[in-house]
Amino acid sequence: MAETLLETPLASLHRELGGKMVPFAGYAMPVQYPAGILAEHLACRSGAALFDVSHMGQAELVGEGAAGALERLTPADVKILKPGRQKYGLLTTESGGILDDFMVANLGDRLFLVVNASRKGVDLPAIEAVLPAGVRLNRLEDRALIALQGPAAVPAVATLAPAIASLGFMGVTSTEIQGIPVLVSRSGYTGEDGVEISVPAGQAEALARALLALPGVSPAGLGARDSLRLEAGLCLYGNDIDETTSPVEANLVWTVGKRRRTEWNFPGAERVREELDNGPKRLRVGLLPEGRQPARAHTPITAGGAAAWETVGEVTSGTFGPSLNGPCAMGYVAREHAADGTALDLLVRGKPLAARVAPTPFVPHRYAR
């Protein structure tokens, strides 16, 4: 039987704009528009690109003690988050794996959460299961989420909502855009400056049309979103992080709050502490293959050369980076092969492709600091 796909509030607009719709996390989503992935990627790097991310899960935690309740599932320091500020964090499992990555914002009277589309059916029940009396989780299923990314994004949208221009990186504010009430965060998933805009579902198309009418703004799909985030060295859940990877292995130790490292009272703390003390067996690294051929996910990573091939890891994400003008990848390798500059081979269709371990991001972040 064919899969019945959900649609976002912008589905008809995607089709009107010529979007090529594909299944993604249970939704019909545009992978690209007629301009193509390369053009959409470069438009985001040079101007502004609009992405529909309404498939993501939006929710809010309401009630006294909401931050402490959320800390039962994450090593992030949520209590330290000031009103009008947002942070990136991980939900962890009892075995020290990553249940999901998420964003949390302090809106003063409540916490606002954004979780991955493929994991919201796991994350939200897990959060509900640890809530004390007086704290409740509200699923915001009647809202859309639009990301406007690129160096021209904030100057463009600020012509419609001037308050956005004064937001710092990871700042959050409630405002209006052409009379539409929105929640705006200065954040994104491209490595560029930009905003993510939560909007009532019924007004999402009007907002998207208003944004697309701004000078220099063009639509972009999942293909460009993936190549942009990979050049920026950002993880994709299900590829680069999952329930088998720990925050230490994933090189995401910075998400573990300083206070949390003294309390050790989050799920999986024992594994995280052990790996911090003694080092993990493997680490997520950036990889730069030689030449022009990309190495895709699940490509074996080997060391020792043709004389003594030894599999030391696996690629988790790989593509041709349009801004980099060459291939780039991320993957996990045994710790002794994880130093920057280490020479490795990627077995692409059984043939070795020379590569070296390289620091990420491959393209410098340009967040508003």
Rank of each mutant, 00 (worst) to 15 (best):
L167F: 09
I37R: 07
V184S: 01
P125H: 12
A295G: 04
M1Y: 11
L81V: 09
I146W: 01
R209E: 05
P300M: 09
L50P: 01
G65V: 11
A354E: 13
G321D: 03
T190P: 00
A355V: 13
F266Q: 03
I98Q: 12
A354M: 05
V104W: 00
F169G: 01
L212E: 03
T245C: 12
S12G: 13
D101P: 04
V312C: 02
G97F: 08
A39C: 02
L140K: 08
A307H: 12
L287A: 06
A43K: 03
G65P: 10
R15W: 09
P280C: 07
P352L: 07
K20M: 14
L222C: 02
A105V: 06
L207C: 08
V333D: 00
E128L: 07
V195K: 04
S246W: 07
L222I: 13
G84V: 08
H365N: 06
A161L: 10
P267R: 04
E263D: 12
A66D: 00
T93H: 03
S187R: 00
P219Y: 03
R229F: 04
G179H: 09
Y27G: 05
P364C: 11
I301N: 01
A25E: 12
G221E: 02
A152W: 00
F169R: 12
A156L: 07
K87P: 00
P322H: 14
R139A: 06
A250D: 07
A163F: 02
S95M: 11
S198N: 05
L90I: 08
D142M: 02
P327R: 02
R335A: 15
E310S: 14
V182L: 02
G305L: 08
P294C: 12
D123L: 09
R72T: 09
G89H: 03
Y27W: 15
D226R: 04
R366M: 10
G134A: 14
Y33I: 04
V182P: 00
E3R: 11
H14T: 10
A343D: 12
G63D: 04
G304V: 11
T159W: 01
S95T: 14
G223Q: 04
D123Y: 07
S95G: 08
V272L: 13
P132N: 14
E192R: 10
L50F: 08
D277W: 10
L324D: 01
R356D: 05
G304L: 11
D109N: 14
E290N: 07
Q178I: 06
E94T: 14
A48G: 14
I37F: 02
A59N: 06
M330N: 02
L214C: 12
S12A: 15
T311R: 15
A25R: 02
A117G: 15
P200A: 08
V184P: 01
P280Y: 07
P155V: 05
V312I: 14
D193V: 09
P280W: 03
F169A: 04
A66W: 00
I80S: 14
G291D: 11
V333I: 09
T299W: 03
